[in-house]
Design a protein around this nucleic acid. Structure first.
Lengths: 64, 64
DNA sequence: CCGTGATGTAAAGTGTACTTTACATCAGCC
DNA sequence: GGCTGATGTAAAGTACACTTTACATCACGG
């Protein structure tokens, strides 16, 4: 499942460590999600959408 | 994380087995999610929202 | 009654989300 | 050249999402 996290994070000039702290996960988790190593859990997905002020559907691409 | 799955499934007169089949998970997974035993993964959450014709935010309640 | 369908519980196993720690690389700066 | 910050990789461990199988309960129709 693709996502726009690297892009959205860049727009806000946040480092991976910044974002990790904002949503209470480790930096490794951010790296893994950005690199597509795995999908976040639903609660983490909600926190990511919220921190960017977007909906989950706007952050994660449902490529069917 | 609360969800409206039991309610939405009921409105459509689908059994747990029906819904499980439609989104390609086991019936146990539906039971566990309805009973709040755990949250679905993001891909399963997307499939649930899609099968109900709603957004993830409309199916899952982000109680902060 | 008895059978059937829908819902539920339990347990054991597999895979994945997430953590912590440690180290590598690369760019920019002084 | 050496320091620092940002990004990345790797590995080991924990917690949780999901599966399969098996069995219990309860409502309903015949």
């Amino acid at each position: 499942m693709k996502n726009r996290i690297t892009e959205l994070r860049g727009e806000r000039d946040w480092t991976q460590a910044d974002l990790a702290q904002r949503i209470s996960v480790s930096r490794q988790t951010i790296i893994a999600i950005e690199k597509g190593k795995f999908d976040p859990s639903l609660p983490v997905a909600f926190r990511l959408a919220k921190v960017f002020g977007l909906t989950i559907e706007e952050v994660f691409l449902d490529e069917q």
